[in-house]
Amino acid sequence: MRVAVVGMGKMGLLHSSILNAIPDVEVVALCDKSFLLRRFLGKVFKGVKVFKDVNELSKADVDAVYVTTPIPSHYGVAKALYSEGIASNVFVEKTLALNFEQARELRDLAQDYGGVNMVGYVRRFAVTFREAKRLLDEGVIGEPVSFSAYAYSSEFYGVSKGSKVTVPEVGVVRDLGCYAIDLALWFFGELEVLDAEVKAVVSDRSEDSARVEVEASGGLRGEFSFSWCVDKHRMPEAGFVVEGSEGALSVNDDKLELRLKDGSVSRWFRHDLKDTVDFWLGLPEFFREDKHFVDCVVRGCSAEPSFADGAEVDRIIDEIRSRAGRYG
């Protein structure tokens, strides 16, 4: 399977390295607009074609393309891959697009062109969240009644308003909160945004923290809290507490705890859940994610999370920003 990667920042390098470690997969082309980076890539990745423009990938005869560019460019790059006939098997890092309108168009393009499509919501492949999903599906805590979820990092903790620090223009909800939104959609199904508040901390125009209230089917109520200004979160972290009719479940990137009404308590950490992979780079879930995409391309089956799933996350994000008055 011949793969190209567009955008050779941190995520592009990560996926390229993992893909080359998967049997019968070869990264044959890389694409980045930076001249200096292309020179570096040409020296490090021997025998791999390096291009400046995504349209040049038509010369590489690839089976699939990874899009790991900054979020604002996802739409243009992915659309070009389809319209130029470069590949119909496309992986796009989160979020699928910059807004729901773009995401919906990419979702429809993927459906029209066929092939396998997937969005990089990697936490679906973390052992703790996968086990939480299994327990919820099996009804271990009974019927879910409510949930609270968070996505935090310390990336801008302690940064005062007016500083020269630059925060991502896409805002904390799209950059970080999207992981928790995707997991909630995976756990509970369709969500409706009831209320939202987005606050600026670093600058007057930045979107640095958010509070969101949602409702799922059956009257399930949920709350989200997002911020990249929280202490003691050097590594980004997402987590949930789900209250059910027969107990409660709490889960984050590293730990899962189950408390039932009969008084029993169970805890699992990553190592308890056999968190092993054939090639470990970054976190084990990155290998599982890439292996899932590759296996789906080889077998010709649908991958998850798909562009349709990713578009739903973008719809929720647009709703949050609209409710919070962050448009216009």
Rank of each mutant, 00 (worst) to 15 (best):
A97M: 11
F100A: 08
E101K: 13
Q102L: 07
Q102P: 12
Q102S: 09
A103K: 02
R104D: 14
E105M: 08
L106W: 02
L106E: 14
D108G: 02
D108A: 06
D108N: 14
A110D: 10
A110Q: 10
Q111A: 08
Y113W: 09
G115F: 00
V116Q: 15
V116L: 03
N117S: 09
M118E: 05
M118K: 11
M118G: 02
M118S: 01
M118F: 01
M118T: 04
V119L: 07
G120D: 00
G120C: 11
V122R: 05
R123L: 15
R124V: 03
F125C: 14
A126T: 10
T128N: 12
F129Y: 15
F129I: 10
E131S: 13
A132N: 11
R134C: 09
L136P: 13
L136W: 00
L136N: 11
D137F: 00
E138M: 07
E138S: 09
G139E: 15
V140Y: 14
V140W: 14
V140K: 11
I141Q: 12
I141M: 08
G142L: 01
G142F: 15
S146I: 01
S146G: 02
F147N: 07
A149K: 07
A149F: 14
Y150K: 11
A151H: 07
Y152H: 12
Y152W: 11
Y152A: 00
S153T: 12
S153M: 09
E155N: 14
E155C: 05
Y157I: 05
V159F: 01
V159E: 12
S160H: 06
S160N: 15
K161C: 06
K161W: 02
K161P: 09
K161L: 10
S163Q: 14
S163H: 09
V165K: 13
T166P: 00
V167A: 06
V167N: 02
V167C: 08
P168G: 13
P168R: 10
P168S: 09
E169I: 02
G171V: 00
G171Q: 03
V172K: 06
V172M: 03
V172Q: 01
V173N: 01
V173T: 11
R174V: 03
Y179C: 09
Y179N: 13
A180M: 10
A180R: 02
I181R: 12
D182M: 09
L183C: 05
L185T: 03
L185M: 06
W186Q: 08
W186I: 02
W186H: 15
F187C: 12
F188T: 10
F188M: 11
G189A: 07
E190Q: 08
E190W: 10
L191D: 01
E192F: 10
L194G: 07
D195T: 10
A196V: 04
V198S: 06
V198P: 01
V198M: 01
K199R: 03
A200F: 00
V201R: 01
V201N: 04
V202Q: 06
V202D: 03
V202P: 08
V202F: 00
S203D: 14
S203P: 04
D204T: 00
D204P: 00
R205P: 03
S206C: 04
D208F: 00
